[in-house]
Simulated scan of single mutants.
Amino acid sequence: MTRTVLVTGGTSGIGRAIAQRFAADQAEVFITGRTPETVEQTAKELRVHGVVCDAADSGQVEALAARLNELDVLVNAAGGLPQATSGEGSALEVLLAQWHANLAQNLLTAVLTTTSVQDKLTRGSSIISIGSIGAERRGGSYGAAKAALGAWNASLSAELAPKGVTCNVVSAGYIADTNFFHGQLSDERRSALLEETHNKRPGTVDDIAQTAYFLASQGARHITGQTIHVNGGAFTTR
């Protein structure tokens, strides 16, 4: 039976890899992004449906939800490290803008999208949100937003699991070949990130895509309310 999958932030990096993985399984996949040209090009390349949508905009999210009928898998992959603010205004105003941007991009995108499609989820469906190792340490406002994502996911699971919907976070460590650092990752910082891992390699977008795909499988129906860490051992749970 063909599944319907929605991947926010599906035009690049982790989101694109996840969309591609589900598309390879013959799912009907919808991807979103904020730039029309990028959405159109990615949808054509992956042979999926593309929808222009800023997942932090409630009106655009409502319009997105109106296009969907039943939904089997929701992947909240929209997010990332916001571009640095211009520095205009007082120090507190700049700080406030930075926190608002991180909360909007990395928490509210998932909350708004999930809420908008919640009544379309089928029994046996899955919600997967992309978190970050930044929630565990040195994450600043970005890490705080991702930590809040995990807390929200736990409460969401308590609400939806009785209805047959699993809810999990995939917390990614350092993933190579994404635009997360906006091209500003130094060789020294990259070496330090690799040294933190146990297997001494960067993660790949496919590492995250395969984990997300598993969490939406029949083999993962008793996994819910969890944060799954995929970071090569850079952060371990006990």
Rank of each mutant, 00 (worst) to 15 (best):
T8R: 04
T11V: 04
I14R: 02
G15S: 03
A17E: 10
A17T: 08
R21Q: 15
R21S: 09
A23K: 07
A23H: 01
A24C: 04
A24I: 01
A27P: 07
A27W: 02
E28M: 11
I31G: 06
K44F: 04
L46H: 02
L46Y: 01
V48C: 13
H49Y: 10
V51M: 11
A55K: 00
D57R: 01
S58N: 01
S58R: 14
L64G: 06
A66Q: 15
L68K: 07
D72N: 14
A77G: 11
A77H: 06
G79R: 08
G80Q: 07
P82D: 02
E88F: 14
G89D: 13
L92M: 12
V94D: 11
Q98A: 12
Q98K: 11
W99P: 00
Q105H: 01
V111P: 03
V117R: 00
S129G: 04
S132H: 06
G139P: 05
S141L: 07
Y142L: 04
G143Y: 03
G143F: 04
A144Q: 09
K146Y: 07
W152G: 10
L160H: 04
L160A: 08
A161E: 00
N168V: 07
I175H: 08
A176Q: 13
D177R: 13
D177I: 00
D177P: 01
T178E: 04
T178Q: 13
S186N: 06
L193D: 05
E195W: 01
E195H: 10
T197M: 06
P202S: 14
T204L: 05
T204V: 09
V205G: 01
I208R: 02
F214C: 07
A216R: 10
T224W: 04
T224C: 04
G225H: 08
Q226D: 11
Q226L: 02
T227Q: 12
T227P: 00
T227D: 11
H229P: 00
H229F: 13
